[in-house]
Amino acid sequence: MSGTPIATTRSAAGMPTGKLAVWWLIGSEIVIFGGVLASYIMHRLAHGGWSEEAAHTNTWIGALNTMVLLTSSLSAVLAHQAAEKGDGKKASKLLWATIVGAVTFMIVKAFEWTEEITHGYTIASSTFWSFYYTAAGIHASHVLAGAICMYYVAKSAAKGEHLHRVENVGLYWHFVDVVWIFLFPLLYIAK
């Protein structure tokens, strides 16, 4: 029953409405991750003993996943570039590459967690492991959500529709990448 309202097409702030909303969304996500990471950091700084538990995390797998996310960010930004040039087909393909990155990330994560859980490091083992699984879990749910959004954007971009959405979903994806850039040293490197 409703077409796009005129309200959506206005741009008094000088930025397309969709992109504006994504930036506000990113702001709200900063405080969600900020809450859990701030809680984690203050605990970590107060507990010298946590470094012994953190020693059981696998830096190499963490680095591999960082690599995967950085690369998927590259394909997302290349998709944005293609969409700007009006090449919906290419943008769609590059978005699919990003989705493959997201899926790879999740698969690596699945193997990593299985390994850790079978060695007895579960979410209830200690507060360090609780934070480890909670922070990475919230992040992983964002990876999943981003992949689902990209699936729909890639589908419409292939038909040359809603090309501006390629940038918007890309912005979100880069944000998810940035969160992982901080999670990686916090959970894996700091030992």
Binding site: W24, G27, S28, E29, I30, V31, I32, F33, G34, G35, V36, A38, S39, I123, A124, T127, S130, F131, T134, I138
Partner: peptide
């Protein structure tokens, strides 16, 4: 609302884990 609710959303997740998954945040 947007700028203040985030930590509580994170806290609510932690609380759900405390209630149901045996964590001890």
């Amino acid at each position: 609302f947007m700028a203040s609710v985030g930590p509580l959303i994170a806290g609510a997740i932690m609380m759900l884990f405390d209630q149901n998954l045996g964590t001890a945040f």
